[in-house]
Computed example of a mutant assay.
Amino acid sequence: MKLYYSPGACSLSPHIALREAGLAFEPVLASTKSHKLQDGTDYYGINPLGYVPMLELDDGTRLREGPAIVQYIADLAPTKNLAPANGTLSRYRLQEWLTFIGTEIHKGFSPMFNPNMPEEAKTIAKNKLKARYGWLNSELEGKDYLMGEHFTVADGYLFTVTNWAKPTGFDLSPYPNVQSWHARVGARPAVQEALKAEAPSK
Rank of each mutant, 00 (worst) to 15 (best):
21 A>F: 10
43 Y>N: 02
42 D>P: 12
29 L>N: 02
40 G>T: 00
41 T>K: 13
23 L>K: 02
36 K>E: 14
22 G>N: 01
40 G>M: 05
30 A>L: 02
25 F>G: 04
24 A>E: 10
19 R>W: 10
41 T>H: 08
42 D>L: 12
19 R>H: 12
42 D>C: 07
28 V>E: 12
30 A>N: 01
36 K>N: 09
38 Q>I: 06
29 L>A: 02
20 E>L: 15
33 K>P: 03
20 E>Q: 11
36 K>M: 01
20 E>N: 03
45 G>M: 00
26 E>I: 14
19 R>G: 06
16 I>L: 06
28 V>T: 04
33 K>Q: 15
24 A>W: 08
31 S>T: 05
27 P>A: 01
24 A>R: 05
21 A>Q: 01
45 G>F: 09
19 R>D: 09
38 Q>P: 02
27 P>C: 03
34 S>P: 02
16 I>D: 10
42 D>M: 08
30 A>F: 02
36 K>S: 11
40 G>D: 02
39 D>P: 06
40 G>Y: 07
27 P>L: 07
18 L>S: 07
16 I>R: 05
41 T>G: 02
28 V>K: 13
35 H>N: 09
38 Q>K: 12
38 Q>C: 03
21 A>W: 06
32 T>A: 14
19 R>S: 04
17 A>Y: 06
44 Y>A: 09
16 I>C: 00
43 Y>H: 01
26 E>P: 15
35 H>Q: 13
36 K>H: 10
45 G>W: 07
38 Q>Y: 01
37 L>K: 07
17 A>S: 10
22 G>E: 12
28 V>G: 11
22 G>V: 10
25 F>R: 06
36 K>C: 11
39 D>N: 14
22 G>S: 07
16 I>E: 04
26 E>V: 15
24 A>D: 13
22 G>F: 07
31 S>H: 10
29 L>C: 03
43 Y>V: 01
26 E>R: 13
34 S>Q: 14
33 K>T: 13
43 Y>P: 01
30 A>K: 12
35 H>F: 15
42 D>G: 06
16 I>Q: 00
44 Y>S: 11
28 V>S: 07
34 S>K: 06
45 G>R: 09
22 G>I: 05
21 A>L: 11
27 P>N: 08
18 L>I: 09
26 E>F: 11
20 E>F: 04
38 Q>R: 14
36 K>T: 15
33 K>N: 13
44 Y>C: 13
34 S>R: 06
42 D>W: 14
